[in-house]
Amino acid sequence: MLKAIEQDVFQFVDFAPMSFDGYIDNCLITHTVKAVGGDTHLGGEDFDKLMVDHCVQEYKKKENKNISQNARAMMRLKIACEKAKRDLSSTPQTPIEIDSLYEGVDLTTKFSRAKFEELNAGFFNMCIKHVESCLGDGNTHKNDVDDVVIVGGSTRIPKVQKMLMEFFNGKPLCKSISADEAVTYGTAVLAANLTGTGDAKVQKMILADVTPLSLGIRVVGGFMSVVIPRNTPIPTIKVGDFVTSIDNHTIVPFNVFQGESRKTEDNIFLGTFRLIGIPPAPTGVEKLKVCFKLDADGILNVSAEVVSTGAKNSITIVKSGVLSIPKDAK
């Protein structure tokens, strides 16, 4: 006798101080991440900055004093705005009061939730676009999502919750997990699974992840040639074919990057190595084969080979900024 088991689809929205991320998880014993999306440069600190900028302008208009170049005053104002932002999650209006903010003059003002939402409307809309994009990458319609789990301190903002509920056609948000502790809980469960500790349920858990950002190398013009696209299931092996771009080029550097921008200067630099022993030849004659191997632990090995001679070199990247020593390094 066979029994059909339905798999629930979860949309996770992680909105932390420094980033906004969304991912879709198809859950059973095996947790299959279908897609990851977001913006590592969008988070709660962006809201704080707009509040601070607004207060600076109000203070300048009221007191005729510009505090933007005074580090101490700006830090005090930033701390006060962070507190006000948290307070506005539970109250429609909150005071911001700082004694002797600058040259002995106090700052006293009131900040409303409506003003906060007005200032950050662009960021809020951007968040919803990222959620929509993530669903598209995972080939999942929003009506097929069973639960929307919100994680991270900024998901407490009423406007963010309202927009998410409206986007998912009124579906209630899952708030049973502590927004501040969820990531820590998940890390602890995964650590227990990897180290063989914990109960049987933890040991049966399997996480099938995807690459959160594209991986590739820099080519002529400073552009990034993607070898492993974003949201590729891991582990994975991808191969790219390249040619020399300069006549009689005998040494070619390979610079590895992570990101979604076409220009490598806007992406994350991971490491570099050189391929030597290329036979002198006109541009485009010598063919180079580049292989990216990404394992289940996120460890990336990048190798390059001269097709005509078999000369090789490689680098292993454990994580951003932590590199193995290239084989030709002396």
Rank of each mutant, 00 (worst) to 15 (best):
A114G: 05
A4G: 12
G196F: 02
I96A: 04
K62R: 13
I251R: 06
K319R: 01
E132N: 03
N255Y: 00
L300R: 00
K78Q: 13
E132A: 08
M1V: 15
E260Y: 09
K129D: 00
R274K: 14
P253G: 02
H54A: 15
A71H: 11
R86H: 12
I246R: 11
P212H: 06
T195D: 15
D266F: 14
G298S: 04
Y59N: 00
S89F: 08
Y102V: 05
A188C: 15
D241H: 09
V302H: 05
V239Q: 11
H141F: 14
G44P: 11
T91I: 08
T140H: 02
V290P: 03
A121R: 14
I177R: 03
S133Y: 13
A71V: 14
S308H: 09
F292S: 08
T184L: 13
L323H: 09
R218I: 02
G298K: 06
L215C: 10
L288V: 04
P158V: 04
R218F: 00
V322A: 06
N139H: 13
E132M: 06
F10N: 02
M75W: 15
T40P: 13
D25S: 15
R230H: 07
D48T: 14
T197R: 15
I299A: 09
L300C: 07
I67Y: 13
I217C: 09
L207M: 05
S154Q: 12
P280S: 13
K238M: 07
V33M: 06
E117Y: 11
D21W: 02
V13K: 03
G198R: 10
N248T: 07
T309S: 07
V239L: 09
V302W: 04
P233E: 10
I237P: 12
A311G: 10
